[in-house]
C-alpha cells in the first residue's frame, strides 16, 4: 500500500462574515495516498472548495493541520486547476500554459519544451497565440489543465474544473484528463458536485456533509482502470455506488434546505 501523501488532522475552518461566525469545515481527518485520485463530493456550501484552498495553502486552517509529504524540493507541492475563470485573460494560450514555469524560473529551453508538449497533449497548438476571449469554455479549461500539469506538481488540486461546461465537452475533457493523468500517476484531489464524475474519475470518493462540512463517509470505487464513460455507464457496480452516494446526498441536501428555509422564515 502506498504511503500517505496528504495527512489532514482534525481540520476546522471558521469564517467571520458580516460579524457572524460561519463554520465551513469541522474536525476533518483524512489521509490521501500517494498516486491516489481522490474525489471530494458534497452538497453546495459544504466547504469542499475551502478544503482544497486549505490544501493549496491559499487559506490557513482555524484549527488542526494539513501535512503534505513533499518528496522533491524542485517540484511544486501543489498546482490548482480553478473553476471556469482561472485563465488569465491578458495572456495568450501559450503564455498561460508557460505561466507557472516562468514563475519557477525554469531554463528557457525547458519552458519551451514543456509548454509545447502540453499544448500538443491538450490539442491547443493551433490556438497558442490566441487570447482566452477567443476560446470556448472547454478550450479555456484545457489551458487551465495544461498550465497545472506543465509545472509537474506533486499534488494536483482541481476545483470543479468542468462544472460550467456542456455535457459533451465535459465527457471529452474527463477522458482527456484521465489520459494525461495515467501517463504519470500523480496524487489528485478533485472537488466535484457530480456523482457520475466522481465515480468515473476517483479511486476513492470522500463524502462531505453540509454546513458545517464534516466527513460523512469514504467510498472506494471498485472499477478497474483504464476507465471509459461507456464501460462505466454499463457497469452494475457503478450503478450501485451511484445510488448509495445519491441517498446520502439527498438527505443532506434536503436537510440543508430545511435548515435554510427555517432560518429564512
Amino acid at each position: 500500500m502506498a504511503r500517505n501523501k496528504i495527512e489532514i488532522r482534525h481540520l476546522s475552518k471558521v469564517y467571520l462574515r458580516n460579524h457572524r461566525l460561519t463554520q465551513a469545515l469541522q474536525d476533518i481527518t483524512l489521509n490521501i495516498r500517494e498516486g491516489e485520485f481522490c474525489a471530494i463530493i458534497g452538497p453546495s456550501g459544504c466547504g469542499k472548495s475551502t478544503l482544497l484552498r486549505l490544501i493549496a495553502g491559499l487559506q490557513q486552517p482555524s484549527a488542526g493541520e494539513i501535512v503534505l509529504q513533499q518528496e522533491d524540493p524542485n517540484r511544486p507541492p501543489t498546482a490548482m486547476v480553478f473553476q471556469e475563470q482561472g485563465v488569465l485573460p491578458w495572456m495568450t494560450v501559450e503564455e498561460n500554459v508557460a505561466f507557472g514555469l516562468r514563475m519557477r524560473h525554469l531554463p528557457k529551453a525547458e519552458i519551451v519544451r514543456r509548454t509545447d508538449g502540453y499544448l500538443q497533449k491538450t490539442g491547443l497548438t493551433a490556438f497558442r497565440h490566441a487570447y482566452p476571449k477567443e476560446l470556448s469554455g472547454g478550450m479555456k479549461q484545457r489551458v487551465s489543465l495544461a498550465r497545472a500539469f506543465a509545472v509537474d506538481p506533486e499534488i494536483l488540486l482541481m476545483d470543479e474544473p468542468f462544472s460550467a461546461l456542456d455535457e459533451q465537452n465535459k465527457f471529452l475533457l474527463q477522458e482527456e484528463l484521465l489520459r494525461i493523468w495515467s501517463e504519470k500517476k500523480r496524487t489528485v484531489v478533485y472537488v466535484t458536485h457530480s456523482i457520475d464524475e466522481a465515480i468515473l474519475l476517483g479511486d476513492r470518493i470522500v463524502l462531505l456533509s453540509a454546513s458545517p462540512g464534516r466527513l460523512a463517509s469514504i467510498e472506494t470505487v471498485p472499477l478497474p482502470r483504464p476507465r471509459h464513460i461507456e464501460t462505466i455507464r454499463t457497469d452494475p457496480r457503478s450503478a450501485d455506488l451511484f445510488l448509495s452516494i445519491w441517498q446520502h446526498l439527498r438527505s443532506q441536501v434536503q436537510h440543508a434546505q430545511g435548515a435554510s428555509s427555517a432560518s429564512n422564515a
Partner: peptide
C-alpha cells in the same frame, strides 16, 4: 477578479 490573484499565488508568483 480575486481568482487571478489566487492563480498567481498558487503558481508561486
Amino acid at each position: 477578479d480575486a481568482v487571478y490573484l489566487e492563480v498567481a499565488r498558487n503558481f508561486g508568483a
